[in-house]
Design a protein around this nucleic acid. Structure first.
Lengths: 217, 217
DNA sequence: TAGAATCTTGTATGAGCGTACAAAATTCTT
DNA sequence: AAGAATTTTGTACGCTCATACAAGATTCTA
C-alpha cells in the first residue's frame, strides 16, 4: 500500500480529535452523557464518523481515559523532575492530583462514573490500577530509604485513599475547595510521618538538616 | 374512604417488597443494571407492577437509597448505644462503615455509581450529604470536649475521606480486605490524635485514666 | 353470591442510543 | 482532467428500557 503513510496520518489526526472531543464531553457530562452523537457534534463532525475511525464506542472511551491519565501524569512528572527536595516532590505529587482548574464538581463526578464502571468492566479497572501504581511508585521515590516496605505500603494506601476520598466528597457534597483539599491531605501526611522525618524530607539531598540552623535561621 | 386502611396496608407491603428487591438488584448490578424489569422479576412480580405503586423509577430508586442508608445506620446506632467508652464508639462508627459481609467489590462499585449520580442529580446529593452529616455528628459525639470546632471539622473530613477512599479503592482494585481497611482507618485516626488523647478515649467516662494503673495493670 | 373495588398481568408505545451502510464529497494518482 | 481511493455525511435499523394501559384475576362488600 503506497498510500499508507498519508492514510495513517489523517486517521491518527481524526482519532486524536475525536478522543479530545470525547474528553471534553466526558468532563462536562460524565460517562453517561458521553454519547456517540455528542462526541461527534463536539468534534464538529457528522454522527457516523465515529464508526469509521473506531471499532466501537468502547475504543473511544478507553482512549479517552488513557488520554486523561496521560494529561494528569505529564504535569506531575514535569514538576517531579524540577523538585529540589523530597518535600517538593511530595507537593508535586499531591498538588498534581488536584489540578488547578480541574477540581470541579462536574469533573469529580465524571471521575466517579469511571470508578463505578471500573468495578464492572475489567478494562477500566486495569487503567485505574495503573494510575494507582504510578502514584504509589511516586510516593515510594519520596520516602525511599526512610520507610520500610510495609510502612510504605500502608502510607501509600492511606494517602491514595485520602486523595480519592476528597474527590468523592467533591462530587457528592462540593463543600471543599482545591486549597483546602490539598491542605487536608498534607495534614494527613504530617501525622503519618514524624517531625524528624518531615525535616529530613524538607532538606535537599546531601545537605543534611542541621537542627540548630533551622531553629534559629 | 372506608377501605383506606386495608389499601394502604397492601400498598405499603408492596412498596417495601419492591424497594427491598431493588436494593438486592442494586447491590449486585449497580445503578446501571438496576432496570425496572429486573426489579420486578427479583420481587417475583410482573414487569408492569412498578408503575402501579410508584410514580416512576426514580421514586423506587430514592426509596432504595434511603432503605440502604437506614440499614447501615441502624447497625451503627445499635453499637453506638452499647459502647462503654468513646474508643468503642469510634470502633462502632468505623466498623459500621465497613459492614461485615458487605465490603465487596460489587457493592463498592454499586456505591460508586450512586456517588457518580449524586454529582449530577441533586436528589442523590442530598441523601449522600445527609449520610455524611450523620457520620460527622457521630464523630463529634466521640471527640466532644476534646477537639475544638475547627479541629473536629478537619478530623471528620479526613476520616470520612479515608473511609470513602478505601471503598473507592475496593471498587477499582479490590486489593484490600475488610480488616485491613478498618486497620488503615485507625492508623489514620491514631496519627490524628495524640497518644494522650487516645488514652482519654479508651477509658469510660467518669473513670479518668490513671497512668500508673494502665502502665502496670 | 353478585357486583364493585382493588390488585396484577402482559403487552404496546415511544424515546434514546450504538452501529451499519449507501451515497455524496473530497483527495489522490496517473 | 478522469478515474480511483479515501473520507464524510445522513439516515435507517435494531436494541434496551421506562412508562402507559387495557384486560384479566383477586379480594372485598352488602
Amino acid at each position: 500500500m503506497a498510500t499508507q503513510g498519508k492514510r495513517t496520518r489523517i486517521e491518527d489526526i481524526r482519532r486524536v480529535e475525536l478522543i479530545a472531543a470525547a474528553h471534553r464531553v466526558f468532563l462536562e457530562h460524565g460517562l453517561q452523557g458521553m454519547t456517540s452523537a455528542r462526541i461527534c457534534r463536539e468534534a464538529g463532525m457528522s454522527p457516523g464518523i465515529l464508526a469509521y475511525y473506531f471499532k466501537g464506542k468502547d475504543e473511544v472511551l478507553f482512549g479517552m481515559v488513557r488520554y486523561n491519565n496521560r494529561l494528569l501524569m505529564e504535569d506531575v512528572i514535569a514538576r517531579l523532575n524540577a523538585a529540589p527536595t523530597n518535600w517538593a516532590r511530595l507537593e508535586a505529587i499531591v498538588e498534581g492530583n488536584f489540578p488547578a482548574q480541574a477540581f470541579t464538581r462536574a469533573i469529580a463526578s465524571a471521575w466517579m462514573s469511571v470508578c463505578a464502571e471500573a468495578g464492572v468492566n475489567e478494562q477500566y479497572a486495569r487503567l485505574q490500577r495503573l494510575f494507582h501504581r504510578r502514584l504509589r511508585s511516586n510516593l515510594a521515590s519520596v520516602f525511599d530509604g526512610m520507610f520500610d516496605a510495609a510502612r510504605l505500603h500502608e502510607a501509600s494506601l492511606i494517602i491514595a485513599a485520602l486523595i480519592d476520598g476528597l474527590w468523592l466528597r467533591k462530587a457528592v457534597a462540593d463543600d471543599i475547595g482545591r486549597d483546602e483539599a490539598i491542605m487536608l491531605v498534607f495534614r494527613g501526611i504530617r501525622s503519618l510521618v514524624s517531625d524528624k522525618e518531615e525535616q529530613q524530607l524538607r532538606y535537599p539531598p546531601g545537605r543534611e538538616p542541621k537542627q540548630a540552623r533551622r531553629r534559629r535561621p
